[in-house]
Design a protein around this nucleic acid. Sequence first.
DNA 1: AATAGTACCTTGCAATATATGGTACCTTGT
DNA 2: ACAAGGTACCATATATTGCAAGGTACTATT
Lengths: 120, 120
Amino acid sequence: MYTVSDTMNTQFKKGVLELCVLVLLDRKDCYGYEMVEEISRNIFISEGTIYPLLKRLKTEGLVISYLKESQDGPPRKYYQITEFGKEKKEKLVAEWNEFAMGVSNLLYNRNVDMEGNCDE
Amino acid sequence: MYTVSDTMNTQFKKGVLELCVLVLLDRKDCYGYEMVEEISRNIFISEGTIYPLLKRLKTEGLVISYLKESQDGPPRKYYQITEFGKEKKEKLVAEWNEFAMGVSNLLYNRNVDMEGNCDE
DNA sequence: AATAGTACCTTGCAATATATGGTACCTTGT
DNA sequence: ACAAGGTACCATATATTGCAAGGTACTATT
């Protein structure tokens, strides 16, 4: 199991894990435990986080799920992204990029003139 | 007053606004209303967010404050970053950069081998 | 006198990552 | 046979924090 330093700021992850899960599922169907492994390659995530998150995504209609047997342990619950989920993913990616750029500008004092960010 | 689209994901900001405030205060002393203006150039922030945040930073010893009269309205409460605050800022900047890079790798499927992210 | 901008503040709410603890399957070593 | 460890799922309670909504008060403009 891969791990990234668990000192990483918990708050930073708010909302981002949903984005990460949708991005993974847009590539291929995954089961929960697998996604924890994947995401853990890059940012720390606790197992206790993924299952409530997946449940929420399912309730919101962003994903569906199906069971599949496994040789290595109990049956796996695979998740598949829906069309609605794909739309949401696109929206979140765009928002994340805009946000990350905004933060970067603030941190490194680049006050670029962006379209539509001024009242008059 | 500058504004960025207020549709920006609220969750993304968790923890980041603290970082932004500390970065601003590391450049120069600022008062709350001023920081809202500055930050709003790049990411949406509500006025109702900054004052509880500043209060918390003060309680934690990351900043101190002093009053100064103004011609344009009521007295301004300026905030100054402490040595402890500067250390915290450095730590948060590093954590943010690591985090943002991790997310970027996940979004764009760059599974780089980074040092210390594998158990064996 | 009324309005708008500046500048501060408090309270309650909503969202979500995590810790903790639990169930159950399979393989390997003793 | 059985203990241990990895795989795989789940639920609950808690902490953190951004925001909306509402308030006070000063100054300048209409």
